[in-house]
């Protein structure tokens, strides 16, 4: 009697697929539990009225969204503040980053030193940065107004006057984050083959023409990436506002991420805060898609 020795029942392809899944399963499990799970949970919570303190929760459908969009005046003010912040920060940040990159991508004396100086705030603690700037922006004894007084300008109370407060947080945020965009632009500039610019120069093109016809178009993919991350970052801003103005004065710097925090963790309206978070998510998604479409349309 001979027992038939069975060979492996799985094909090579199936076995490879299984081992492949096994290899990625640890990271995939973590990703599902810590990223996808909470994301889906936020959508669910946004349809409930859930008080974090009393732990009472019941389904209210779209009521939180209807309330935020039609009955809550503060929400619209907050949304406008967020858009003003983004509209101020994104162009300023990108222009400054591009200017710095153009100046510092060349191998000139001191370039490495200045690159380090402009990149240093990126790796500085956001808390330390914000606190130091609140000191620098004090009304009478702050370094900024003292410097201005030397040239005869009576500086405003930067963080305590509604219009100047928004400008101040935008400006200090730009200085904090511009270094990262500068580095991305420098990397992109250095990857442009020199042949192109040299050929253009031989044809008689001047500096502006070379920038407009060669450098800028070749930077387009980097510009899109930078624009997306800067827009997303500006709409999600929280730490800067929390530390420098606390949303004031007179709610002038109350932005969406800070308002979500207040609703969720100060008023314990977790369901409502989740709905606001979904609105922020949709807003960022829409803007990102729009930027990609506009870029594709131009090609």
């Amino acid at each position: 009697m001979s027992a038939a020795i069975k060979g492996p029942s799985l094909t090579l392809k199936a076995r490879e697929a299984i081992s492949g899944w096994l290899f990625v399963s640890p990271i995939l499990t973590g990703f599902m539990i810590f990223f996808v799970g909470p994301l889906i949970a936020v959508f669910y919570y946004s349809t409930t009225e859930w008080n974090l303190l009393s732990q009472q929760s019941h389904f209210v459908g779209m009521e939180n969204y209807v309330d935020a969009l039609t009955r809550n005046d503060t929400f619209w003010n907050v949304l406008v503040n967020s858009l003003v912040f983004a509209a101020g920060l994104v162009p300023l940040n990108m222009l400054l980053a591009l200017g710095l990159a153009l100046a510092l991508s060349r191998s000139v004396r001191g370039a490495v030193f200045f690159r380090t100086v402009f990149f240093a705030p990126v790796i500085t603690s956001a808390v330390a940065w914000a606190i130091i700037w609140t000191f620098l922006l004090q009304h009478e004894s702050g370094a900024v107004n003292r410097a201005l007084s030397v040239i005869g300008i009576n500086g405003p109370n930067w963080l305590h006057e509604p219009h100047w407060a928004m400008a101040s947080v935008i400006f200090t945020r730009v200085l904090k984050t511009v270094g990262l965009n500068m580095i991305l632009y420098i990397a992109a500039l250095q990857s442009i083959p020199r042949d192109y610019t040299e050929a253009a120069r031989l044809e008689g093109a001047n500096g502006w023409e070379i920038f407009r016809r060669i450098t800028w178009p070749l930077l387009a993919p980097t510009t899109l990436v930078i624009m997306v991350i800067t827009v997303v970052g500006s709409l999600k801003v929280f730490d800067h506002i929390y530390l420098m103005t606390g949303g004031g004065p007179q709610n002038a710097t109350l932005v969406l991420a800070f308002y979500i925090y207040e609703q969720g963790f100060k008023f314990f309206n977790t369901g409502y805060a989740s709905a606001l978070a979904v609105i922020l998510f949709v807003l960022i998604l829409a803007l990102t898609i729009l930027q990609t479409i506009l870029k594709a349309a131009r090609k």
Partner: peptide, 17 residues
């Protein structure tokens, strides 16, 4: 109180001029 505090905050801010 947290809601009262948030609602009153911009008005208190308006006092400081």
């Amino acid at each position: 109180f947290p809601q009262i505090e948030a609602k009153a905050r911009p008005e208190f801010d308006a006092l400081w001029s």
